[in-house]
Design a protein around this nucleic acid. Structure first.
Lengths: 198, 198, 198, 198
DNA sequence: ATTTAACCGAGACGGTACGTCTTGTCTTATA
DNA sequence: TATAAGACAAGACGTACCGTCTCGGTTAAAT
């Protein structure tokens, strides 16, 4: 990740915003066209029409570049507009999440990064720090919590919410259907509803 | 994966079981010591004291070797002995799953493979075919289903069962505590219990 | 320099003589076409149609390759056939030397190596060890010594013989004319002739 | 080479003499410490505490800088004070030459430049134009010529004079001893003495 | 007993990405 | 306008690993 608060009075040629954008776009394109494994630092530089050193100057690994390239897109994509009814709110969010993970380009990048994080300590920290999924999940949970008082702590509730979708996408690579998403939402509602008075 | 039903009347020197074991052990050791990324075909061969061609003769990628090295261990590790009560049965399974994914060596291998599967088509198929987690989950679900009639189709129920744990381990790398696992089991029970008569 | 006495019982794929020749020829060609400075290890490998590692496996520097490529040619080129008269013998040798240093391809390589030796310790030793000029000079000096009894030790006599030509070629890059070579030979003869009885 | 007679009415900030000196000293130091090959334009600028562009503005190559840094020192070092006797005059000069080439820092630079000149056309011309050795040699030859009437044209005589020393220093890197220098002077005297009347 | 076929180890082969280095140029703010 | 600083595109450096090929040697079944 690059330092955003730069000393405005520092000497020397300033960083080229043009080169930065070219690299980020090259990474996006290459991921879609060639896949993560075939994407190399060398290839990124060439595709961006940028010197190799320039890439290494600002990013250490392709994971870092990819993260910078996709985080803002990811956040945006995951936003689902609020609904009055908890059930529709949850289904709407689960649909956004599923679409993001299984169809979107930023989701492709995210999946690749989560994959890399499994066997690279530094990528793990990077992805954890970027915290792509939580904010949107927390929003939804905050909205429905008043009506579902048995909901556990947000951290655990988040896992209950997104876990089943992750399981499908990361493990089986067959995204759940709308019917399944509705069933998941219903299950959560049943689990989190106030217990019937005995 | 290697062909196990070999023509017993083949001519020539038979495959060396010694070499095979040496490779599988080398892969296990290297994964634990160096990590998946630093593990190379060349390194595996050297560690195993085996010719490089011998490795390539029987496996195409390090993912294949790793899979062969960990599947049986994984299956064994995931087995949790049946309990009378559904709640204890589910908690017991979730504990095994958590331990496997976050502590066991075979779990480390599995996580690495799932990671690689996110950006490698062939590894994806390989892992899908090996189907490490499902069988044990299906067992538990089959045991508790009679007492939890609202449980959906096994595929979806599996995602509900293992998804939250996956979310924790693959995304946050902080395995859930026993208390959290209990809360998850309780939530599933509430979700899958017979609906109260209106 | 490569080891010539190879263990006949060594294992593994034997060194490719084809690749070796391709590299030596590539070096010869590149030196003539591009010059020493523009000649790179990478360029040599590409020109030879050989892997870069293969070049590094057998030679450490381009100087080493160049030396191996030119030594035998150099020796051959410097041979001048014996003459009865010392004067003609010396002139003949000086002509060969001049031609070698100023016209021959192997001479071009030799000059480049001597140049590199001025600012690279290891090249210095390499060139010294190859000992390109001395043998031929020693031959001539041995032939004429009986008739020129005042000739000093061979080492010093060699410097007297080849020094003036080197001075011209290395410093001024204007090879001496035949007339000048004859004058040099005459001067040596006068210097090395028996002193007149007092 | 830089233009020394600058238009005194030029506008803008004048060239920094401080920077110029810093660069020349940096080059001297680096040559002695790291050697010619390890000496880079970047390294020179850093060592001099000078911007890289400033170096490129005034010199094209490190050879140019080195030449400017050493020529005056070289000339001075090569001066040998006149002696009455030709023999002592020649020996004295050969000693200066040997010391310069084999011990002095400016001599080290000169050798490096002569080396580079063997595989770089522009350095060749630069060194030829600087003409470091000739003037001092011509002085000595002019002094002794009256007493050695058989001496050939100065150009050739220069090669006879300095050639053997060059051969030793550039090829063998073992500077001649005083005894050998004396022998060389004696040989020249014998070669250049008036021929005895028949 | 010999031949044949497939295995074994070792290690060289042509390729290619790695991350670093230097080159010469360009673009800032400062003097 | 020269300066120090430092980013830029380009490309060579030497190393590592890729997957293949080619040796000598071993081990069994088929001749």
């Amino acid at each position: 990740m690059t330092e955003s608060a730069v000393d405005p009075h520092r000497r020397g040629r300033p960083r080229s915003e043009e080169a930065r954008q070219a690299v980020l776009e090259a990474v996006d394109d290459l991921l879609a066209e060639e896949g993560y494994a075939a994407m190399t630092m060398r290839g990124i530089a060439e595709r961006a029409g940028v010197g190799r050193q320039t890439v290494y100057r600002w990013w250490s690994t392709k994971a870092e570049i990819l993260l910078e390239a996709c985080v803002s897109d990811a956040r945006e994509q995951l936003h689902s507009r609020p609904r009055a009814e908890p059930r529709r709110d949850l289904v709407s969010y689960l649909s956004s999440l599923t679409a993001f993970l299984s169809e979107d380009d930023a989701g492709l990048a995210f999946r690749a990064l989560v994959g890399e994080a499994q066997h690279d300590e530094t990528v793990r920290d990077l992805v954890a720090q970027a915290d792509v999924l939580s904010p949107s999940a927390h929003e939804v949970l905050a909205r429905v919590r008043p009506k579902l008082p048995a909901m556990p702590a947000t951290a655990l509730a988040t896992d209950q919410l997104i876990g089943p979708v992750l399981s499908r996408v990361l493990l089986r690579h067959t995204p759940p259907s709308t019917r399944e998403l509705t069933a998941l939402a219903d299950a959560l509602i049943r689990a989190w509803q106030p217990l019937p008075a005995p």
